[in-house]
Design a protein around this nucleic acid. Structure first.
Lengths: 404, 404
DNA sequence: CTGATTAAATCACTTCATTGGAATAAATCG
DNA sequence: CGATTTATTCCAATGAAGTGATTTAATCAG
């Protein structure tokens, strides 16, 4: 356990991030308001804003009027200040999106994915990224980085297989480093649930939250934790394996060796199986539309799955609450919005937990906002998070995206 | 959500704490070694050590020899640099201990506790503390603060009652503020489990760990989480209610409304009930000795309880692992050491979880080291933790114990 | 219309913790 | 016994935030 000291440069970068994050979350706002929000001196804010404007990260949008005194100049994030790519594998497609630092999607490319050798897939990604930069007239040096999301867990860039849902054949390939070398851009790798949680934190339902749990419903079930404003990855980088929380002590056997794991009841794979799809371990193109259709049609097989999934998720939510007392639990993943909402409706009302006494203005369970492109969108937020979030400990790390 | 900027003073205090914590954990060590450990410049360390020595927090212990070059001067924490009191209510006694900042117990007073009006108890505490200061010849200004541990949850200094195990009649009394006013010393209030976790982190099994869960077995069951080197209290300050994790979906009904909560299987109250004590909601003086005796005697009623408790704790450990992937889980509380060890022996072997793949050198489950005085010892560490731990966010808070 | 008032933003300068480089101290090595 | 190595300190430099006065530009009051 090594503790690093802070020097002026650390403080400097930390403050740049504090200001940037304050602008991001509260824009439009003036220098004077930033002063009050951060506790820094007006002169300091003036200097920092000058720098950030110079770097193209912040822009003046308007002069306020109607009040006494010199009119405040409102600032916000300059969307053209930086760009990131998000890449997701999964349910049969390779999705690459280009977003700006304000969170807007600038371009989107969907490719069929047949699981070739890793190298071939990486070449495909690299070619796609180059084409998108060309088409959108974005200079490569304005790209902060590339986020890569794979529905699995990692340890030191390598896949860790725990359950049955995993990409076959990729186990001992260092995806992140290879892609980074090929692209000449920083590449950040994350599992689907954590990336989705970061996405919701930056632009979605978690914008103003510091402590929440994200339940990710994909082919399997994953969990992403946000604690004290930071993603929590655990002592060994594998936190959030909520798919193996036991929701029924005498329930279905799970490959993990226990019985009644959450993942045996609530997942897209199981929804598909319920709809009569035999080979449901991986979710493929069109499957999600079929689920949405089934809900519309009132397909009783889907409704039965919904009830079962809701009952087990209800248990999981209460466990998460009792263990972590989060501000809220966000339910998201790849499910179409109507299906997600139907699921939440069936989960409620939640039984008693430690969260009962909390302020009534925050619901205990809410739906994620990012929609069906969640994995790629979450991926695209990774470099933004890395480059913007003010956390002193981040600044001690090597390899952080450095833009300020 | 307000983000504070950092200034030189924050950095300064942060670095003082980084150095102090480095010395605490790695003593004896030299200035040059601190330089290498913290990444700060040699001159900086020299300055900081001069200050800390001046303040009496660090002392020189010896000159090293045998190696080339100017011999290094070894430093360590000066035990006389500060003192703290730990106060615990519970199992029938009021326990007050005086410790130094190195963690040694300097004095210990045990009083019978009958639950009078809160004011009367506070007067009793204040008188005891004064007497102990007198007897040990410790000046009041060298006392960093008083830690207070109550077996319950709080919100804004007030008790929150969730289960059935709680102190009767004290619900709307601001314990912390009242005692602080009476003593003229900083008073820190914490629940038993979190305080015990902090104690283990500073001086016990968690000394070198940054991420662990502490399972506290007292009258009820509590959990204390240590994440990223900081106690984690959740979004609303009530994390760690692991007593209400469901370990048996069709199990015994719990006052919380669910079935099969951990607290219905593993707690000292239940051990006593198993031993034929009818009124076991609160644990009283001598009860713990009876449990130890029963284990020695091989009392089958106790052994049955142990088996049952172990089975349910096993479930809980796996849930914690899958959710948080901690470095380890520490099992502790008020149980006598042999009973605790018998319990751990029965919990193992643990079933599969995400923790299986971790480095083999850290066991998944270990016993706490603090022993039967755990609550008071944990309480006494609260001011030390508050005054020593380097976490930038702590420095923005008001009311932090300020010694450097 | 005009001067007083208010608030935002900036200019010129100060403060101070860390840092860098040279110097010094005290041991071992050959 | 001089060369080498390593720890520590002296002294001045750096550069971050902060301070106080000043400028700018609006509204308000009469």
């Amino acid at each position: 356990m090594k503790l690093f000291g802070a020097n002026m440069d650390h403080a400097r970068r930390f403050n740049r991030r504090v200001v940037l994050e304050t602008v991001r979350l509260q824009a439009p706002l003036s220098r004077a308001e930033i002063t009050r929000a951060t506790g820094l001196a007006p002169q300091t804010i003036s200097n920092i804003i000058a720098e950030l404007s110079e770097a193209g990260l912040v822009r003046s949008v308007s002069r306020r009027s109607g009040a006494r005194g010199q009119p405040a100049v409102d600032l916000d994030i300059n969307p053209d200040g930086g760009f990131t790519f998000g890449v997701s594998f999964g349910h049969g497609v390779l999705l690459v999106i280009l977003t700006d630092v304000a969170g807007a999607v600038r371009d989107r490319v969907e490719l069929d994915l047949d699981f070739d050798a890793p190298e071939a897939v990486l070449d495909q990604i690299a070619a796609t990224i180059s084409a998108m930069l060309e088409r959108q007239q974005v200079a490569r040096q304005r790209v902060w980085g590339v986020g890569l999301v794979v529905p699995a867990l990692f340890q030191d860039d390598r896949l860790v297989v725990l359950g049955e849902v995993a990409l076959p054949g990729w186990k001992d390939f260092s995806l992140r480093q290879s892609l980074q070398d090929k692209l000449g851009l920083p590449v950040l790798l994350e599992n689907d649930a954590t990336a989705a949680a970061i996405g919701e934190r930056l632009y979605g339902a978690g914008r103003t939250l510091t402590d929440f749990a994200y339940i990710y419903i994909g082919a399997g079930i994953g969990g992403g934790l946000f604690l004290r404003g930071q993603p929590y990855r655990g002592g060994y980088g594998k936190s959030g394996e909520i798919g193996h929380l036991v929701v029924d002590t005498n329930g279905r056997p799970c490959p993990c060796g226990n019985r009644g794991c959450l993942e045996r009841y609530a997942s897209v794979s199981l929804a598909l199986k319920a709809l009569g799809d035999g080979q449901a371990a991986t979710v493929r193109h069109g499957d999600l539309d079929r689920i949405a259709k089934a809900l519309e049609d009132g397909d009783t097989r889907l409704l039965a799955w919904l009830d079962e999934a809701a009952a087990s998720l209800r248990q999981a939510v209460v466990m998460i609450e009792n263990m972590l007392d989060p501000q809220t639990v966000i339910l998201g993943g790849v499910l179409p919005r109507p299906v997600l909402e139907a699921l939440i409706a069936r989960i409620e009302p939640l039984p008693r937990s430690v969260s009962l006494n909390k302020a009534a203005d925050t619901p205990r369970l809410i739906a994620a906002e990012m929609g069906p492109d969640t994995p790629a969108l979450g991926a695209a937020t990774l470099p933004v998070f890395d480059g913007m979030t003010p956390e002193l400990s981040l600044l001690f790390k090597q390899g952080v995206v450095e833009r300020i």
